[in-house]
């Protein structure tokens, strides 16, 4: 059952990335190109994607946290922690890579089936970066899982 639900979730997520055209790096870069605001070429679509997502996700998180558990098991919501250097350095590194190419992880996965060579190369490099993180920088010790350190 969790596997079926996860598959449905991935399908809906991927449909959203496709409908909103966020799978296209050029569309994302047109949002990040803020010089376009003055030139009249700025594409604010990405902000509307986030707004549309938050309008649905925020009530769902409210309900989930009130209930204290999910339909198929316990809730794994990361503990609230203070801002730290890892978060800041990681976010800036991610932003630099995002600005260089226009792919973030979700679209990089959904773009795989389109057959663009550079999309496949990007995905492989991204997994490589994640593997390097696991090898040299991941927190070690009992009780800490990937779910604990994800947003």
């Amino acid at each position: 059952m969790p596997v079926v639900l996860a598959l449905v979730t991935g399908l809906v997520f991927g449909a959203g990335l496709t409908v909103s055209q966020m799978v296209d790096p050029a569309k994302v870069l047109a949002f990040l190109d803020i010089a376009g605001i003055a030139r009249g070429t700025w594409d604010p679509s990405l902000a509307f994607v986030m707004g549309g997502a938050l309008a649905v996700t925020a009530p769902a998180y409210y309900v989930a946290q009130r209930r204290g558990q999910a339909a198929l098991g316990p809730l794994f919501i990361p503990p609230r922690r203070r801002l730290d250097k890892r978060l800041a350095v990681g976010a800036v590194m991610f932003g630099i890579g995002w600005g260089l190419v226009g792919f973030c992880p979700g679209p990089a996965v959904s773009a795989l089936g389109f057959g663009a060579t550079k999309a496949i190369v990007f995905f492989a490099a991204m997994l490589g970066g994640m593997a390097v993180y696991e090898a040299i920088a991941a927190p070690r010790g009992p009780g800490l899982t990937a779910a604990d350190i994800s947003a």
Partner: peptide, 11 residues
């Protein structure tokens, strides 16, 4: 860019 996105999002 791919390496930075992979490493940065995990960190």
């Amino acid at each position: 860019g791919g390496v930075l996105v992979g490493y940065g999002t995990r960190l």
